[in-house]
């Protein structure tokens, strides 16, 4: 009984996070300017990280945690590099 409730809750959460990723992807595709696209990419990385964490809860493996950590790191590095590029026109001066 409790397992069924937990399974339904986790699946519903994954669907909601997939919708959040869809909203962010729409902002990437549609964003009127470049900074909107970078903002959408940041939100997409975040929702993807949370989706991977829910997969980790669902399967009970800690493997997904490391993937989520790597996605968080890469999202930070990518967003900072793109913001720097928008500011200066170069990433490393």
């Amino acid at each position: 009984m409790s397992t069924l409730f937990l399974a339904l809750a986790i699946t519903a959460a994954q669907i909601l996070l997939a919708f959040a990723m869809g909203c962010a992807a729409f902002r990437i595709l549609r964003g009127p300017r470049a900074q909107d696209r970078v903002l959408g990419m940041d939100a997409l990385y975040l929702a993807g990280m949370l989706l991977l964490l829910t997969y980790g809860i669902q399967t009970g493996r800690t493997l997904f945690f490391e993937g989520a950590l790597v996605i968080g790191l890469l999202g930070f590095a990518g967003t900072v590099a793109l913001a720097k590029f928008l500011m200066r026109g170069e990433v490393i001066e």
Binding site: I10, A12, A13, L16, L17, A20, C23, T54, I57
Partner: peptide, 10 residues
């Protein structure tokens, strides 16, 4: 908590 976090993110 999982459902709450996913709803807030959405």
């Amino acid at each position: 908590l999982v459902l709450l976090g996913a709803s807030i993110t959405l």
